[in-house]
Design a binder for these strands. Structure first.
Lengths: 203, 203
DNA sequence: TTCATTTGTTCTCATAATGTTCTCATTATA
DNA sequence: TATAATGAGAACATTATGAGAACAAATGAA
């Protein structure tokens, strides 16, 4: 745990290390730290560094030259996690149940995933509205029932539910909208561009 | 993983290789590296190169002459960003348009936001389905038209669209489902627990 | 191709630089 | 006075550095 009770010199050392790293991209050596605060002893500089390690501000690669590393200032909860309050329907006020679980969105951020904004109403009955952002994982193949981004005749890209005919010669692209009809293409005309793995909307 | 704990000479070597490649379009030979940092031993130069390989800055084609390659500095896209491909409807295959824009989800992750899983169908016509996860920003007040988490009689929490009566004595909670009816409560019985700011779904 | 040369790689040995751990003395402060 | 913070510097351990030998692989020329 990080302490706030730094002596003046400890604070000076910390500030110096921070600005040094800012400029030089490597940590200073003890000699340089000593000079920076106006002393000559490497041993004393080492003592200050050690105090900052104990206080939780630094980390050292013991023995290595320039082996000081700054620790991030906050515990910083994982950037892709949200506190998850489960079924709030249970009825308690939110303050009472905070900090229980977490929901992790890192699965949205895989190497092969990308986002596109949906145009049109063809998937409204699947809860995908005009203007929503969908997260797609890039793949060249899909399974029946997947919602895919399909490129037709190398021209038109569209988001639809995917179904292959029994012989595999045709591909049916099914909208989730009772006002619209499924479309059938020869398999050669359709290129899968990815499969829907997530959806985002921001109000 | 790339370390930035390089010794002075390691950094000198790296800088030299970078500028050499910039000019000559091939990597320098060990002899040249040695001269550049003022030493005579190819063996020592090799040791520096190896250190940079270990640190993740270089790659070598072992044995090959001038076989050093610079590794690109990781662009490290923000952990909360996704490549955003805009209207893929334009028709190009995905490979052709990768790496253009980014969509940043950091606004989902504010200090006062949390996530809950939706139960029930009361908001389907707003595109919020049973099982979806909604992101809520904690607030005690809401504006007409906001979708809110409301706690009724300190017991039941529900997600509905919010509307206040003209005198402010009553609050109407409106489902987005034509099969269901709005409900009206005295303002004292309703406690706002937060306002909908986002929605996530994972397939 | 064949061969000489260059270049990369792996060693060992020696030295310098840096980090680490001490003790001792001084100063400030409760 | 007692305690903590500070500074100097010695002594030692570890790491970084430099030279160069010996060998293997790659390269370029005949």
């Amino acid at each position: 745990m990080r302490t706030n009770e730094l002596t003046d010199n400890q604070r000076k050392v910390l500030d110096f290390i921070q600005s040094y790293v800012e400029v030089n991209e490597v940590s200073p050596k003890l000699q340089e730290i000593a000079e920076a605060i106006g002393i000559t002893s490497r041993g004393v500089a080492h003592r200050y560094v050690q105090a900052l390690v104990d206080a939780g501000f630094l980390e050292t690669h013991s023995g290595k030259h320039r082996g000081i590393r700054l620790l991030p200032s906050e515990p910083e909860r994982s950037a892709t996690a949200l506190p998850f309050l489960g079924k709030i329907a249970a009825g308690k006020p939110i303050e009472a149940i905070a900090g229980q679980d977490e929901i992790d969105l890192s699965n949205f951020f895989g190497a092969n995933s990308y986002a596109i904004r949906v145009q049109g109403e063809s998937m409204v009955e699947a809860g995908i509205m005009d203007g929503d952002i969908v997260v797609i994982e890039f793949r060249e193949t899909a399974n029946d029932g997947d919602i895919v981004v399909a490129l037709i005749d190398e021209e038109e890209a569209t988001l639809k539910r995917f179904k292959r005919s029994q012989q595999g010669r045709y591909i049916k692209l099914i909208p989730e909208n009772s006002d619209m009809e499924p479309m059938v293409y020869e398999a050669e005309r359709v290129r899968i561009q990815g499969v829907l793995i997530g959806q985002l909307r921001h109000y």
